[in-house]
Write a protein that binds this DNA or RNA. Sequence first.
DNA 1: CGTTTTTGACCAGCGC
DNA 2: GCGCTGGTCAAAAACG
Length: 473
Amino acid sequence: MDSSNSRLHLNACTGHDDNRSGKREVVDEMDFFADNKEIEDDVEGDNGSPKLSRPSSSLDFSHVNTDLLLLTTTANTNDRIDPSLVGMGTSSNPEQREKCEIRVLRSELEKMSLENERLKEMLNEETNKYNNLRMHLITMMRQNQEQQQQTIHRNHRNSDQIEINRNYHADTTDDHHHRASPEGRENHGPTTDKEMLDDPNRNVDQAAAEATIKKARVSVRARCEGNMITDGCQWRKYGQKIAKGNPCPRAYYRCTMAAGCPVRKQVQRCADDKHILITTYEGTHNHPLPPAAMAMASTTSSAARMLLSGSMPSADGLMNPNLLAQTILPCSSHMATISASAPFPTVTLDLTQSPNPLQFPNIPSNQYPFPFTTNALLPQILSQAFHNQTRFSGLQMSQETDQGRQSQLNDTANALAADPNFTAALVAAISSLVANNSNNNNNNNNNNNNNMANDNASNNNGSSVNPSNNNNL
DNA sequence: CGTTTTTGACCAGCGC
DNA sequence: GCGCTGGTCAAAAACG
């Protein structure tokens, strides 16, 4: 108990002002006893000297809060009691009150944080469930679509086969079998569709077709300072070679998101422009993919089917990829090519140039490798592309369903466009649309490298491999 | 210590 | 058959 407390106690009891350190506090104390001021005046003598020896009988000390002594025990020498707090019996110090409030706020903050964490966990859980369901739905839809396409294709060809020269049909079907067997094995299977349908060895043909699909590739040319474009998958490097005609080594990666996944990709810098990275994908994933990887993953398989379809005979004649692509993406131009004349049929997306200088002003490549990233048209383009994909797919949908789907596609496109890490995969998605449409229209690929529609998409420099690979690429 | 990368060796396809 | 080339394997090294 320091002297100030003793002094304060004295003041509270007597109202005597012996405070030499601050008058204001004394006044406040006096205000606290305002009700008894008259009495106190009577207690004091005319000369101001205390008259403690003559206590008034009218004094009622019951009004004096005895807590005062206790409340001031923690006050330092320079502190005085806040009269508004005196009598409350809880806190007499603003700092204490602030500390108390801070403790309360912290407690509330902790509670909110815990609640936030809990909600985050719930959100993640629901998001995972949603993604899984979405993946499952997409897979089911794709399978359904393929089954319908196959049915339509068979019916179409069966109805046409009377009009088609039988020898030609036999030759082209055989050619298809040759194409479906990249290893060059002889295939003397059935020569008509009916025979094919009835052929018990048709599974062998399907296996050959699958082999072709596996060999079909999607190549993406993009300006990228990093060693790889981000496509949402995890890759492991398993080899590197110096390819002929390019001093830059070619790196070989395989997907490691699941054991036995057949998907592989090659990454190589362009010989002419070291800033251009050429990424070639091959195969179809055999495992669930994160949303960021779905577009690219579907691209390779779709492109493979497209190219396989392009090798098939058709009474519709040769397809025009450029026209087809313009139908899919009317605002696009010359960003993609299809080539089945290469050792492996390949869809090439050239993302190193802007199709429309007015639409896509020059942006430093190190900032926005693909102008698409910052372009507001991306969601519209994607949505339109997805919509057109559905429209061309042959699926019969009511207008209401179509509208609802369009809304969902718009949301999806917006979400995709907002994620810069997703852009490379979006590019692939566009090519996937081209692939599906060509497949659905049952056209041939005439290997003329016609330009296909595609708008810019963006890229980023993320990589799932060790950055040390930069030295090699 | 497990995983990933590096890198030389090996294999298959293709052209001559 | 031989050589070239692309692609893959696998042991060693590097990494975290």
